[in-house]
Structure formats: C-alpha cells, structure tokens
C-alpha cells in the first residue's frame, strides 16, 4: 500500500521539478549571456575572481598537498606487494588528474565559495538590494549574478590545474625521498602513461563542468531563497549539499562518457 502511494508521489515530485529546472536553465543562460549587457562590468568580474579564486588558493594547495601524500603512501603499500612500485608515479598522477583533482577542487569550492555566493545573493534579496537595483534600472543578473557565475567558471579549472600539480608534487615527496622509490622511474612511468589530451585536458574539462554546476546551483539557490533570515540560512546549506551531490553524480556520468 505504501509502495502504491510512493510511486505516484515520486511521479508528481518529478513533474513538479521540471518547471523549476527550466527556470533555472533560463536563469543560467540569461546570466551568462549578459556579458553583452551594458551593465556587465569586468571590474566586478575581476573582483569576484579574486574572491573565489585567489582567496581559495591556500586552501586548495594545502588540500592537494595532503591528498597527494596520502595517495603516495597508500599506492606504495598496495603496489609493493606485487613488486610494482615502479607504477607509483602513474597511479598518483592518473588518480589526481582524472578524478581527485577535479572532484575535490569542486567540492572544496562548493564549501568555500559556493556557500558564500548563495549567502551573499540571498541576503541581497532579503534586504531588497536586488529589487532596488531593478528600480534603478540596473539589471541584477548582469551586475550581480553574471560576474559571479563567470568568476566561478574561470576559477575552478585554474584551481584544478594547481591542485593537480601540487598533489603530484606531494605524491613525489612521499614516494621518492621518503619511501625510496626511484625518482627516474617515478617520472618516466608517469610520463609514458599520462597523455595530455586524454588525461590532463579531460580532467580540466571535468573541472570546468563542475565549475559551471557549482556556481549555477549556488547562484540559483541564492536568487530563489525566501527573503528571510531563515531562508538565507536554508539556502546556504542546501546550496552546498545540492552542489556536492550534483558534482559526484555528474562525475560518474562524465567519467563514463570521457574515459570509456
């Protein structure tokens, strides 16, 4: 009986979410295209890249360094049993370039910048700042939302490239000086198994997709938040949760599409 009620409910929920998705897509496209609007400002864009990208750098570098070191350790103990430690460089590099780099960058970005973005836009809405802009004949999508979306989309791949590099360096530091893997083999194996377009660029393409998704969700949740203190709080939490889950789900789809 409960099952019978559950099925139509699921259907109804799904149907209800379709117009929401449509509205969110229109929001994304209108905002992205408003770079051509006269109220779009590159100064604002730079300000946001500074806020999202530059100020996330230290977080990313620290996280990448530890991730790389852990990969080095775990990889070593898994491979040493088969006498295959020569493949450690490949293992560290491929794990980071294909999966851990893009996914961890996106998750950290959702927590660090995505939440701040949702909180900022939703509190601007709650205090009528967006309506005030509208009344002053300034399009809030062009002035507020577009620079933030573009800043996220530009920042995430850059952060991901830095994450990959620092992570591989962390893996090297553990593997070669600490665990005694031969340095030449570490790099040579990595170089002969990593391809530029297949692994490095594909990983960065993933990061780009995640950048779009995370900032899109964050901005949309902020823009549609209920204009109360509670609404701002809810939207911020929901933004991080939704963005993180979407990144993981999308990662599965992209991996299946790009690496098969």
């Amino acid at each position: 009986m409960a099952m019978l009620e559950f099925i139509p409910q699921l259907g109804r929920r799904t149907l209800q979410s379709i117009p929401g998705l449509g509205a969110a897509s229109r929001f994304l496209l209108t905002s992205l295209l408003s770079v051509f609007n006269r109220h779009f400002s590159f100064q604002q864009l730079f300000r946001q890249i500074y806020g999202f990208g530059v100020r996330s750098l230290i977080l990313m570098v620290v996280a990448a360094f530890f991730t790389g070191m852990v990969l080095g350790f775990q990889g070593y103990y898994a491979l040493v049993r088969f006498g295959a430690t020569s493949a450690l460089g490949t293992l560290v590099a491929l794990s980071l370039l294909r999966e851990l780099g893009p996914v961890l960058t996106a998750l950290l970005f959702a927590g660090r910048a995505g939440s701040a973005l949702t909180a900022e836009i939703s509190s601007m809405k709650a205090t009528e700042q967006l309506s005030a802009m509208e009344m002053m004949a300034v399009n809030p999508l062009a002035w507020v939302v577009a620079p933030r979306l573009w800043a996220g989309i530009i920042s995430v791949p850059i952060l991901c490239a830095i994450f990959d590099l620092v992570g591989i360096f962390g893996g090297y530091l553990i593997s070669v000086p600490v665990l005694g893997v031969d340095g030449g083999t570490f790099w040579a194996q990595m170089q002969s198994n990593v391809t530029f377009s297949g692994d490095i660029l594909t990983g960065l393409f993933k990061a780009l997709c995640f950048g779009v998704v995370v900032t899109w969700i964050a901005a949309w949740k902020g823009y549609t938040a209920r204009p109360t203190a509670e609404g701002v709080g809810n939207a911020t939490t929901l933004s991080v949760v939704t963005a993180s889950l979407t990144v993981l789900g999308l990662d599965f789809i992209l991996t299946a599409l790009l690496f098969s």
Binding site: H39, T127, E128, Q129, S131, A132, E134, M135, M136, A137, V138, W143
Partner: peptide, 29 residues
C-alpha cells in the same frame, strides 16, 4: 525606470558600498 525612484521599506542600501557610493550608484551605472 530611470525616470522613477523608489524608497524601500528597509532602505535596501548596498552594504558593501559607502553612503556616497550608494547615492552615486545609479549615476555611475
């Protein structure tokens, strides 16, 4: 709307700008 002005219930000032920049905002845009 450039020929309209609105005073909002909660003032709706931009919190990241000074009073001067708030007033200057429509002119600058």
């Amino acid at each position: 709307r450039r020929q309209m002005g609105m005073l909002f219930q909660h003032s709706a000032l931009f919190t990241d700008l000074t009073a001067f920049e708030n007033v200057a905002f429509p002119l600058r845009r």
